[in-house]
Amino acid sequence: MKLNKLTTSASALAVGLSVLASSAFAETVLRIQSVLPAKADEVFMLEEFGRDVEALTGGSVKMEILPAGSVVGVRETLDAVDSGLIDGGFAWTHYWSGKHPAAMLFGSPVAGAGVGIDNIAFLSWFQYGGGKELYDRLWDEMGVNVKGFMLQPVGPEALGWFKEPIETMADFRKYRFRTPPGIPGQTYKDIGVASVAMGGGDILPALEKGTIDAAEWCCPKPDSVFGFQKVLKHYYLQGLHQVVVNADLYLNGDVYEGLTDGEKKAIEVAANASLSKSMSYRIYENGKALKDLTENHGVILHDTPADYFTEYMAAAKAALETNSAENEFFAEVWQSQKDFAAIAVPFWAGAQTSNAQLGKAFADSLE
């Protein structure tokens, strides 16, 4: 009798432990829709981030990455996350400038926020200069049920691709030019450029059809993946419209709150790792891609006309000042960036000068 009771107790304990184990290792699959096609370089890095999250959670959180348009259109991505139609989205936060102008200051602070912040200095502001606290407030300012994670800083982005060389802004203004949405694109319109906003996957077909006849997207590697070199051969690296640009993950707020504290921490840690890994990946990959474009695809590299910088910077500062005057939260975020820049940029810009000159001399020696 005692043996039977012991056996019964042991069986009950085993069942209980099994239930606890299955509960402890319950698997959550987050469906994340990107605003890009599956072949995009950014999606490659997003998938690597997902693998890091899976490893850090012991497999309890997995991410299923869906290409653009799988569930909703690109422009509906954030709304779909907000409503819970999808668990998460992946895009650039300046895409949502229509919901709140301050989105630009996190996704693509035009002309380095007008104060010389590059992609590395931006991370310093974001992680240690008060930027993350403001970023976490952005979603409430927008009125969306979202938890955001910054993943992929890039910059500076190339000015773009043209059919013929441009020597002045007068030449530039002859082209219908694909630009990013929001203030960076509007700033081009302010200086007389025929700016046309569209998603990355639409650019090459638009170039082939003649809907546009010049374009920017990002940098040599992502640009070459989209195949712009098939249509255009004149490439300009130096641009101001996106000195800094960040691609982010957006999780539905209820989905995020349903995760354990350990799972939330794993996503945070993987996101911080992604900030560094994406910059490291891009430097080498862009270098390889630029070499391939110029050596094997007939692409000609040019310096950007000098009058572009004066015209675009003046228009960018005017746009920043206008939005700051009209929106209190925008003004708060921009002031934070300016306060940070007053301390950090003199050091960082000065420290980079010697290395930039050395690097340029080495690059010239290769020619």
Rank of each mutant, 00 (worst) to 15 (best):
A206Y: 00
L66I: 13
G262Q: 07
A215D: 01
F90S: 01
L85E: 10
L6Y: 13
V196G: 01
G227A: 14
F49I: 11
G16D: 11
E263G: 08
H297F: 12
N246E: 12
L275F: 07
Q127C: 04
D79R: 15
F330N: 05
E311F: 00
W334T: 11
D292Q: 15
S18V: 13
H100E: 10
R51K: 13
T77H: 06
E326M: 11
V81C: 04
L46D: 05
L85D: 05
K338I: 10
T260D: 05
H297C: 09
T77M: 08
V43N: 03
R178S: 09
D261T: 15
F106G: 02
K147F: 09
I300C: 14
P222M: 06
L151P: 00
L30Y: 08
G69N: 14
L17Q: 10
V15H: 09
Q238Y: 07
A363G: 06
D202L: 10
P101D: 05
T8Y: 10
V71F: 02
A214T: 04
G16I: 15
G73H: 05
L78N: 11
P67L: 04
P67M: 05
A325E: 06
Y135G: 01
H297D: 12
E54S: 12
K221G: 02
G131P: 00
T168C: 04
L290C: 01
Y235P: 09
V35E: 02
E216Q: 09
A158G: 04
H234E: 11
P205N: 13
C218I: 00
P181I: 15
G107N: 09
N246S: 12
M45Q: 14
Q352C: 10
S34E: 00
G210M: 07
D254S: 13
Q357N: 14
L138T: 11
P153L: 08
L66R: 12
V53G: 01
Q238T: 14
D118L: 02
V225N: 03
I65K: 02
V345I: 15
Q352V: 10
E164L: 07
E263L: 10
E285I: 01
G129S: 07
G116C: 08
S18A: 15
D213L: 00
F340D: 02
S83D: 12
